[in-house]
């Protein structure tokens, strides 16, 4: 094994909405997956930077060509700018743990990156191309596998990773997940935002709202089932800040997630060897940013009653569980394997 002083292992959870990195030097960081370039000379002069990443980019969005380069957790199709944005984002994340493009000073970086369960091969290859030069070795794994690795649920478990762009479901059977063990759904955080936005616009047609406002409201007050209290937000109506009650809209939008998730969970469990189905039902693990929707675990647990009941738990650290799992994979992999993966 190479001396850890010369090698830095990193685990990266590349998310549509938020990306996280955990490094073997003990550092952990999460950033909003936004990258922005100043729109003109004036903006560049004010911002004094050629590119901004994360919250800083979001806060200065009016002066930026702002990109959220990861669609459904993977490189967006179409433009070189988006590929460049992913590179900037990765470079920024690596910089946060001390091994950005500048300042690596001979440190070997070995990275494990989690991608959506059903990512196409071509997308993985694209990611590999984008990361060339940023790291010395790269292992791409499915996100739910990284989560399972982090929480030691590699046998008889169902991982449900509800992110922004996708929800990844994966049954862990003690083997590396194959196509049949995994599903990726587009019913995830962004989908809830869209539904919420439509519902608010339908009920409060006069209010002016933006996707950023809707996302913030959801992150603050998302719930399924019984509301803890009314969800009151402020939005301009004909320019005047106005209080809106969006409790029912929030409930409807969030509860829309439950049926497709429950159906897919049941479908995946039904495909498990009958001998182990009960074990899997009682070991459903929720991860991802959208586990912040209050009551989602109870709603999914309720849905499992259809097939005899089960137990649904949310991981303790939804933001970093994927990157921590990836880091654990990185440190556990043999030096010989890393050599092979350095091509």
């Amino acid at each position: 094994m190479t001396d850890n002083n010369e090698v830095l292992f990193v685990g990266i959870d590349l998310g549509t909405s938020r990306s996280a990195i955990s490094a073997s030097n003990g550092q952990r960081c999460a950033v909003d997956s936004y990258v922005g370039w100043p729109v003109d000379m004036v903006a560049r002069k004010i911002l004094r930077r050629s590119v901004l990443v994360g919250k800083e980019a979001l806060d200065n969005r009016s002066m930026l060509d702002l990109r959220r380069p990861l669609e459904r957790g993977l490189l967006k199709e179409g433009s070189e700018r988006d590929a460049d944005a992913v590179r900037q984002l990765l470079s920024h994340l690596l910089g946060l743990v001390g091994v950005g493009e500048e300042g690596r000073s001979g440190v070997k970086v070995r990275a494990v990156v989690g991608v959506p369960a059903e990512a196409l091969r071509v997308s993985k290859q694209q990611l590999r191309n984008v990361m060339k030069g940023l790291v010395d070795g790269l292992l791409i794994v499915s996100e739910p596998f990284a989560v399972a690795y982090a929480v030691d649920a590699l046998l008889h478990a169902l991982i449900v990773d509800i992110g922004a762009g996708t929800t990844d479901l994966c049954v862990m059977n003690g083997r590396y997940p194959t196509e049949g063990d995994q599903r990726t759904l587009l019913n995830a955080g962004d989908w809830v935002d869209e539904q919420l936005s439509k519902l608010i616009q339908a009920h409060h047609a006069e209010a002016t709202i933006s996707p950023f406002m809707v996302r913030e409201w959801k992150e603050r007050a998302a719930f399924v089932g019984k509301a803890k209290g009314p969800v009151i937000v402020s939005a301009p109506v004909k320019g005047k800040p106005t209080q809106l009650d969006i409790t029912e809209e929030m409930r409807t939008a969030c509860e829309g997630l439950v049926p497709p998730l429950a159906e897919t969970m049941i479908d995946l469990i039904a495909k498990v060897d009958p001998e182990y189905q009960e074990k899997v039902r009682n070991n459903v693990i929720l991860a991802g940013g959208s586990t912040g929707i209050a009551g989602i675990d109870r709603a999914l647990q309720e849905a499992l009653k259809e097939i005899g009941g089960g137990r649904v738990q949310i991981v303790k650290d939804p933001v970093f569980v994927g990157s921590d799992g990836s880091l654990a994979i990185a440190t556990d992999a043999d030096d010989v394997d890393w050599e092979k993966l350095s091509g």
Partner: peptide, 19 residues
Amino acid sequence: ADRIRRKLLREAVHENLAI
């Protein structure tokens, strides 16, 4: 558990090498 981890890691590496 350790055996399963090692097995899964090996399979993950193989999949990456295949790609």
